[in-house]
Computed example of a mutant assay.
Amino acid sequence: MNDDARAGKGSGLATFFAVTFTTTWGCWLVVIVLGEPPTTFPAVIPFLLGGFGPVFGAMAVRIRRRRLGEPVPVHTVRFRLNVRLLWALPLLVPAVATVAGGAVLAQALGGPVLSLDAGRALIATAGGAVPFFVGMLVGGPLAEEPGWRGTAYPRLLASMGRFGAALVLGVAWAFWHLPLFFMTGTVQAGFGLVSWSGLLFTLSVFPMAMLTGCAYELGGVPAAVAVHFGVNATAAVLNAFSPMTQAVVLVVQLLVAVAAIALRRNASVTVVDGPGVRLRHG
């Protein structure tokens, strides 16, 4: 049996995806049936629980591993304090820049004029800057990245490389968001599933999967959280949701992501996905 086959065997990916999708889609279906905005009670409870589906998937993988007596996989970065974790804050800058730069370029190309008015109103609605940004951090990056990047990415990387891992996670991530298009009061429902904005939002997860994957390799889950948070928060504050702006931001992020992966093509990442399986990817 070759290394790739051994790496995929018993990796826990099936468990991760099954628990992640069952938890998220089950909770979000409740919100859809309630027909209320996810910020209102009681819809907010299943909405928040559903957002943590990837974390529940990651927990299920770890419980399964302990039950089977498997060793802890060697991922890119351990949870203990590590110098690589210092990448988290610096990576906020390029994450913000991809959205802000794309929005500025879209305006220069004839798109919507940039304005902070919608962003200020959104922050005010949330009760101020602190609750707004805390909500943005917890409701997306912290609820997702321990699963998508901290659990699924290194296991996929062991068998298919960076582009392959990003592609598979991009597809899974796009489908995972699908219920949001049918949920009253979400940004995705405002776009509409069959629309340019809905299509561009769906496509945007692919460069995001690449960017957060590279961030994970540099600084682990905290770095992936930082990139995810930087992109989401900047898009919300700048109201960068017109089709023109979405399209330009997507292209900018795709170019940056491809460049980032190309620059890391010779960088080695050690991944262990089962007893005695140790692979190095460059």
Rank of each mutant, 00 (worst) to 15 (best):
G69E: 06
V77G: 00
G102F: 08
P73I: 05
G150P: 00
R62N: 14
G135T: 03
T98F: 10
V96R: 09
L157R: 12
E144G: 02
A121S: 14
T125G: 14
G139S: 12
R162E: 01
V93R: 10
V61T: 10
R78M: 02
A106E: 07
S115W: 06
V77S: 06
R80N: 07
Y153N: 00
L142Q: 02
A152R: 05
R162H: 04
A121V: 11
G119M: 02
P141N: 09
V104T: 10
L86Q: 01
M59C: 09
L122Y: 12
L81A: 12
V72N: 10
A103V: 02
V99S: 05
G135Q: 09
T98Q: 10
L91H: 08
V113H: 14
A121M: 11
A118G: 15
E145I: 02
A95W: 04
M59W: 13
E145Q: 13
L81Y: 04
L92T: 11
G147H: 04
L137M: 13
G139W: 07
P131N: 03
T76G: 11
E70A: 10
P54Q: 02
F79A: 15
P73G: 04
A166D: 00
R67E: 13
G127I: 07
M59T: 11
V113A: 15
V55Q: 10
A121I: 08
P131I: 01
G119F: 01
L105G: 05
T125C: 08
V138F: 13
G57A: 04
A118N: 11
M136E: 14
L86F: 13
R62L: 14
V61I: 06
P154H: 03
N82P: 00
T151L: 00
V113T: 15
L109N: 03
L89D: 06
A97C: 10
F79V: 13
G164A: 02
L81E: 01
R66V: 09
L68T: 05
V134R: 10
A58Q: 09
R155V: 00
P141D: 06
G69Q: 02
M160V: 11
L85M: 15
A95C: 08
M136Y: 02
Q107G: 03
A95L: 09
W87P: 00
M59I: 15
V96I: 15
F163L: 13
F56C: 05
G135N: 10
L142G: 03
A152S: 04
V93H: 07
R62C: 08
T76F: 11
V55L: 12
R66M: 11
G139Q: 08
A118W: 11
L91R: 10
F79M: 13
V138A: 14
G164D: 01
T76S: 15
V61A: 09
A97L: 15
P154Q: 03
P141V: 05
S115F: 06
D117M: 08
A106P: 02
G127F: 05
G128R: 03
R62E: 15
T151W: 00
